[in-house]
Design a protein around this nucleic acid. Structure first.
Lengths: 217, 217
DNA sequence: GTCTATACTGGGATAGAC
DNA sequence: GTCTATCCCAGTATAGAC
C-alpha cells in the first residue's frame, strides 16, 4: 500500500491485514468526531478507499468495528500504563510518573480522549467494560491512598480525586475548539501547545494533592 | 397543567407558555442523554404527552429547539455567575466564590454539564457562541491572572488553568456511570455524593493554585 | 477479497383536518 | 393549538457478481 502526496490512500488490493489496519485508522478518527451512534460507515469508507461492504466483511457490524477500535486503543495506550511498576516509588514520584505516562498516551493520540468521552456519555462505558479499561483508575486510586496514608498527600478522597485528575488530563482535548480564540494563531494539537498542556496539568495536579502546611526544604 | 403520581404529565390543552416550558424540560433531558445529533424529537414528544408536530410548531426545527434549550440554560445557570462582582475580593476568595457558584449551578441541574460536553464534542461549541457562553471563562481567567500578579497564586497560565478547573467541576457528571462501582449503594446524583464532589473539587482547585512555599500562619 | 446495487428502517419534517 | 398520516432522505446491512 502506498500513499500519494495528498495523503489520500492508494490501495493495493488483496492485503487483508493492511486493509483492516487502514479501516481501523479511519474509524478512530470518525468515532472521535461523532461517537458510536453518529459515526457513518460511509464516511469511514470514503477515507480509506475501501467500500462499505468491505468494512462489514471484516467487522460484521458498526458495533463490531467500534469494539475493535477500543480494543486496539486499549492495547496501544493503556497497557503501558498498567505495566508501569510504581508500587516501590514514593507516592509523589509515582503520581508524577503515572500522570506523565497517561498524558503522553493521550498526546500521542488525541483522538482517544474524545472517544473515551463519547463512550462515557453515549454508552455509559458499556463497551469500556468489555475492553477492561476501568482497571486504569484502580491504579491511580491506589497511589493516592498510599500517599494519604503516609502523609505525602493532603487528606483527600482518592476516588473523587482520581476522577478529577483524569478530568484535568482529558478536558483540554474536549474543550480545545472552544479555547481556540484564547490562543490566536496556535494549533491546539501542535507540539508546543500539547507540551504546555502537559506542564500545566501536571503542575495543577501535583500542587493540588500537597499537604497544606508543607514547607520547602 | 397537573402531574399525576407517576410523574407522567397530564396536559390541559391550549396553554402555549406551559406547553413550551414542558417541551423544553423534556428536551433538556433528551439532549443531555444523546446530544443534538442523536436526540429524538419523538422521544421528547413521548415524555411530554405532546405530539411531534407541536414541537415543530413551536420551535421550527430540532436545531431551533436545541438553541432554545441552550438559551434558557444560559439565562438560568450562567447569568448568576456573570452577575457576581468579584473584582474587589482577594483572588483566593474570588476564586472560591466563583467555583462554588459554578458548582452550585451544575449540581442544581446535572443535565447541564452533559449538554455542555456534547456541545463541545459534536458541534465544537458552535451553538454556545450564539448563546454567548464563552464569556464565562473570561471571568475565571481574570481572577487567576489577578492572583498570579499579586502573588496569591503560584505561577501558572490562566487560560490552561481555567480550562482545567472547569474540567474538574464538569467531569464528575460525565464519568459518573463509570464511577458507580466505586461507590456501591450510592446514588451518584444524590445529595450526599454531590456535596462530596463539591468539597473534593474545591479542595483540589484551591490547593492546586497555591504558591509552593506558602506557610500557614 | 473486493465491488455494485439494492432492500429495509428510523426518524426529521410537513400537509391538512379538526 | 393540537392531532394523524405521510413524505422522504440518510444510513445500516446484505445479496450476488467478479
Amino acid at each position: 500500500m502506498v500513499t500519494n502526496p495528498k495523503s489520500k490512500v492508494v490501495r493495493s488490493t488483496r492485503d487483508a491485514e493492511a486493509t483492516k489496519t487502514e479501516i481501523l485508522d479511519a474509524a478512530v478518527a470518525e468515532f472521535a468526531l461523532h461517537g458510536l451512534a453518529n459515526a457513518r460507515i460511509e464516511a469511514i469508507a470514503a477515507h480509506t478507499g475501501v467500500t462499505k461492504a468491505m468494512i462489514y466483511y471484516y467487522f460484521q457490524s458498526k458495533e463490531g468495528l467500534y469494539q475493535a477500535v477500543l480494543e486496539r486503543g486499549f492495547n496501544t495506550y493503556f497497557r503501558p500504563l498498567q505495566e508501569l511498576s510504581l508500587e516501590q516509588l514514593p507516592p509523589q514520584t509515582a503520581l508524577e510518573q503515572f500522570v506523565r505516562c497517561l498524558l503522553a498516551n493521550l498526546v500521542s493520540n488525541p483522538h482517544w480522549p474524545l472517544i473515551m468521552c463519547y463512550e462515557a456519555l453515549q454508552n455509559q462505558g458499556e463497551y469500556y467494560k468489555r475492553a477492561n479499561i476501568g482497571s486504569i483508575d484502580a491504579q491511580l486510586i491506589a497511589i493516592l491512598d498510599r500517599g494519604v496514608a503516609d502523609g505525602s498527600f493532603r487528606f483527600l478522597d482518592a476516588r473523587f480525586t482520581a476522577n478529577n485528575i483524569i478530568g484535568i488530563c482529558v478536558f483540554y482535548f474536549i474543550g480545545r475548539e472552544g479555547m481556540k480564540h484564547l490562543f490566536p494563531g496556535k494549533r491546539m494539537l501542535g507540539k508546543q501547545m500539547l507540551e504546555l498542556h502537559v506542564q500545566q496539568a501536571l503542575d495543577l495536579i501535583l500542587a493540588g494533592v500537597q499537604p497544606p502546611n508543607r514547607l520547602l526544604h
